[in-house]
Amino acid sequence: MILFFWLLLSRFSGWSKSVFPGPLQVFESLWGLILNGVMVKHVVASLYRVTIGFYLAILLGIPMGIILGRINIAKSFLNPVLHFLRPISPLAWIPLAMLWFGIGDKPAIFLIFLSSFFPLVVSTTVAVANIDPVFFHVAANFNFNRYEQLKKIIIPAILPEVVTALRISIGIAWLVVVAAEMIAVKSGLGYLILDSRNALRMDYVMGAMIVIGIIGLFLDVLMKRLSKIEPVFWGSIGS
């Protein structure tokens, strides 16, 4: 259906083929990009940046969220800072990122890290603060030490919410990577779009958009899978 409308729209919109290409032309160009390896190169570059940035955000954000949720002093010190930084779009950091990290992968990774870090910290903090205190009583009653409390109470208790947060933040990370790649780098899907625009190849632009959409969808499905693992899934039905 969509393809059909696209076909009609491009045929009768009055714009020329180079401004608003039809589906056939786009898929043909896209196929060409896939065959000559250009597309693979850009996809790998984008995914690489998202993966690194996202992992960094997980590695720092989730432990920080747990600390903020459990230790009130940490919360009263760090929460105001976090809530001040959070509403600033990662894109506003572009000049600083370039200044600090120069040209290349690093500023892009930094921007992706920022985009997923704040939502992860906030959701983890909320999830930890919402754990039913009865579970901590049980832990105390059965003489859990701090490590056991973390491993057997806190982490499994927050997992359902954290997985949801991961799903949302990888979506954001994928949005941000395209924007981040329009500056400072010479590869990635964002760069491909920018470069194609400069070359006035709207068919390439649209091809890249399609690939971005498909990969975004794939990342979301991947994250959804994660929430179906049984120890994670306990929360979706309620205790």
């Binding site: 009583h137 049980v138 105390a140 009653n141 057997k152 208790a157 120890p231 306990w234 205790s239």
Partner: peptide, 19 residues
């Protein structure tokens, strides 16, 4: 403090739902 020599059975289920 609490100890596993005296176990408390809570009013609402306190089974750990992820186990």
């Amino acid at each position: 403090g609490p100890s596993s020599d005296h176990i408390f059975v809570f009013q609402h289920s306190s089974l750990l739902p992820w186990m």
